[in-house]
Design a protein around this nucleic acid. Sequence first.
DNA 1: GCGTTCATGTAACCTGTTACATGATTCT
DNA 2: AGAATCATGTAACAGGTTACATGAACGC
Lengths: 193, 193
Amino acid sequence: MSLQFAILVALSDGPMSGYDIAKQFDESVGFFWRARHSQIYRELGKLKGKGWATSEEIEQTGKPNRIVFEIAPAGREALLEWSRQPSEVQELKDDFLVQLYALDHVDLDGLRANILSRQERHRDHLAQYQAKYRVLEGSTELVDVGRRLALEVAVIWEREWSEWCGRALDQLAGATAATVGNVVAINQKNGER
Amino acid sequence: MSLQFAILVALSDGPMSGYDIAKQFDESVGFFWRARHSQIYRELGKLKGKGWATSEEIEQTGKPNRIVFEIAPAGREALLEWSRQPSEVQELKDDFLVQLYALDHVDLDGLRANILSRQERHRDHLAQYQAKYRVLEGSTELVDVGRRLALEVAVIWEREWSEWCGRALDQLAGATAATVGNVVAINQKNGER
DNA sequence: GCGTTCATGTAACCTGTTACATGATTCT
DNA sequence: AGAATCATGTAACAGGTTACATGAACGC
């Protein structure tokens, strides 16, 4: 269901085609919910079927025609109703953390390389989110307050991850490679086996 | 694929039935990857098919028989191979943040209630993770270092969320309810429309 | 008597990804 | 010549949830 609402949120900024939504997702509400165009077209069909959005085909020459969707009053009502319902807290779900949890059954060098490349990407994302955040600073407009709060979550997420990566690399610096079926102590002077 | 590896990680601690795995998931590797029993049984079948795990039926009287699974050498090898592959960074995906992003099209009172109940749950989770974390403190055993690092992520996640909830409630304290199709300023003395 | 725990599984469904398909225009 | 952009969509598959089904034992 959530994707349908994310699309309605995107349409709240004005009428858009499926193609537009797929692109807009890269720089707005899509920070918090993503989808491929194949899924977007499917969900747009459902929104239309429910009467939550209306569509209009716009003729173009040289390019394929655009089908522009607009949020309908019933769609706005559905959006309001959705926000009255309590939403589920998002639980951590990350295969990388699963690997860490089983550090003694895993390739340590691979994992270290993984952490390093993650750190880079988190720093990149952090810079992006911070730039977006700064634009909204100081505004008291309700929309901007919400977007700032949402972006704050993103900034914290990326910042904490990139700092965590640094600490993890430090702590794993002296560790030896895992041997299948063997328990390895991280500190050789203390490790009995 | 990841669930299969999460199951293999669980089996690394010793042979277990599907039922056991479903329960263990609530207090170990399941902090970072969850699944219903229906899915676990399905994936156990696949693991067996690939030769990554073996099973043995144990007769019981009064209770249904247990089918205990054990990780096979090929499974250990697969786990190692998996950890050599770089894993995708987990992107934020949260319908609650989508709602925040569209604060002017959403029910403010509903959202505030939502934040409050979230704050409670995040505090609960934080306490749980911290307790688990403390048990591992001081250990230099490789497994424990990994689990501590993984739990650290969980602790930070819950702590930052609960603190964020507090700030969000502060900032939304004075805001008025959204009106459909109307832009509302958060600060009445400055709001022109 | 009623709910919970133990223990297995299946079937239908929803969500999301990957790959395929078309066809003109514009940039390198 | 080849790639990217614009713009739509379909089909097959993978991953995950919900609901259904069975049946004995045990505590309240």
